[in-house]
Simulated assay, not measured.
Amino acid sequence: MEENYFRVNPDKINQNYFSLNKAESNHFLKSLRGNIGDEIWLLDGLGIAYKGLICSINDECISGDIINSFNDYGEPNYNINLIIGLIKGKRMDLLLEKATELGVKSIQPLALDNCVKTKLNQDRGEKIIISAAKQAGRSFFPTLHEITGLQDWLNAHTGEFSILCHYNSKDSMLRIIEKKQNSINIIIGPEGDFSERELDLFKKTKIQSVNLSSRRLRSESAAIVSIANVNQIMEN
């Protein structure tokens, strides 16, 4: 069988034994035509991956033995937290998917002055994240936080290393980021950009800003580019 990843509830790992829920079992049995004796990868979403051996199929639910476990499987040794103004529908879906594939630790949606969208379907967002994490083979599923305001976020994260991505900046990530950083907050504006009030807040908190491109990027594009840039700097 090809290398496929399945979500396993941590509560369903009992010493050297595991079981999958009906949805994951159906995917194994009906989509992949799996059977007893197959080896599969299990992701608990908390940072551990397991290699498992299918031993039993009972009422369309599968279970088996744990062969091995791997801490921080598929995870970088630094944290990227994406803070982004809410964007519309499918663009937000794309953002959640690609940010997860690129290795972010958490995603914090912000309700900003120029946001067109004011609500987020939390359940849908978390399903997209889990699906993307399985696709990418990540043992940790990024946290999708509840929507908050900019001032509240700034108050809660004083002193953390944060970067504001804005097209008016003259600086670059390569100059600002040092490899010794173990956690980086990337801040991206909404489709309507930050308001002057919000830009003033960033200046008061002395958050450094960077320019990602000579062209103005959509919010989801800016997020993808910024995460990829951080990965390249930290891993090279």
Rank of each mutant, 00 (worst) to 15 (best):
residue 189 G to E: 09
residue 184 I to M: 06
residue 51 K to N: 10
residue 231 N to I: 08
residue 190 P to V: 11
residue 127 K to N: 15
residue 115 C to T: 01
residue 18 F to Q: 01
residue 227 I to V: 07
residue 107 I to K: 09
residue 169 S to I: 08
residue 36 I to Y: 02
residue 6 F to M: 02
residue 128 I to S: 05
residue 219 S to Y: 00
residue 137 G to P: 08
residue 54 I to F: 03
residue 180 K to R: 14
residue 216 R to E: 03
residue 5 Y to I: 03
residue 64 G to W: 00
residue 63 S to G: 15
residue 68 N to M: 12
residue 106 S to E: 11
residue 201 L to W: 03
residue 221 S to G: 01
residue 128 I to P: 06
residue 87 I to F: 05
residue 11 D to Q: 12
residue 102 L to A: 02
residue 101 E to H: 05
residue 190 P to H: 10
residue 128 I to M: 05
residue 166 H to A: 10
residue 213 S to W: 02
residue 69 S to M: 13
residue 129 I to N: 04
residue 20 L to K: 00
residue 18 F to I: 02
residue 219 S to P: 01
residue 68 N to F: 10
residue 226 S to R: 02
residue 59 D to Q: 15
residue 176 I to D: 00
residue 9 N to T: 01
residue 218 R to I: 07
residue 234 M to L: 14
residue 123 D to N: 09
residue 58 N to R: 11
residue 37 G to N: 10
residue 62 I to A: 04
residue 154 L to M: 14
residue 199 L to D: 05
residue 85 G to E: 12
residue 81 N to M: 04
residue 132 A to T: 06
residue 64 G to C: 07
residue 70 F to A: 07
residue 33 R to V: 04
residue 195 S to P: 10
residue 164 L to P: 03
residue 182 N to C: 06
residue 30 K to C: 07
residue 183 S to M: 06
residue 162 S to Y: 01
residue 115 C to S: 10
residue 134 K to N: 07
residue 207 I to V: 15
residue 127 K to R: 12
residue 33 R to A: 06
residue 236 N to K: 04
residue 114 N to Y: 15
residue 50 Y to R: 09
residue 196 E to I: 14
residue 90 K to D: 13
residue 3 E to D: 12
residue 88 K to A: 04
residue 152 D to C: 05
residue 46 L to S: 12
residue 112 L to N: 05
residue 92 M to G: 11
residue 186 I to V: 15
residue 123 D to Q: 15
residue 129 I to S: 07
residue 166 H to G: 06
residue 17 Y to E: 06
